[in-house]
Design a protein around this nucleic acid. Structure first.
Length: 106
DNA sequence: AAGGTGACTAACA
DNA sequence: ATGTTAGCCACCT
């Protein structure tokens, strides 16, 4: 299975109302340094694989989408809709990782 | 086949 | 503490 398919598969496991970081996802796939690939994977096939791409954010808990096709405001909207509190700050959106970070039990 | 790129991170200045 | 720079790994040209 390709790396990015693992990412998508794992992304689908993120429970509603929680978020995960790229590095976290990468680590779970056993490739801790491939955080960039995670972002790339989501950018590539999240939508078409029905994966909750909005629940994946960077290590700072900030929405870092640079792609115009996936507006961060949309991501923020989807998250709020799921019960995640998103705080806006100067055009950027932040999530409180202390509260909403997905902590899977192994 | 080789080099460039990216929804990232962490280390430095 | 904020701003830059350098690694990272798999895909694309």
């Amino acid at each position: 299975m390709n790396f990015y398919q693992k990412v998508l598969k794992l992304t689908k496991k993120i429970p509603k109302g929680k978020v995960a970081t790229y590095g976290q996802i990468a680590s779970m796939i056993s490739t801790p340094r491939a955080a960039r690939l995670v972002g790339w994977a989501l950018h590539t096939g999240a939508n078409k694989h029905h994966a909750p791409w909005q629940r994946v954010i960077n290590s700072q808990g900030m929405i870092s989408t640079t792609c115009l096709d996936h507006p961060k405001e949309l991501q923020a909207f989807l998250l709020k809709k799921e019960g995640v509190k998103v705080k806006e700050n100067q055009g950027n959106y932040f999530i409180d990782l202390k509260k909403f970070l997905w902590q899977p039990k192994k």
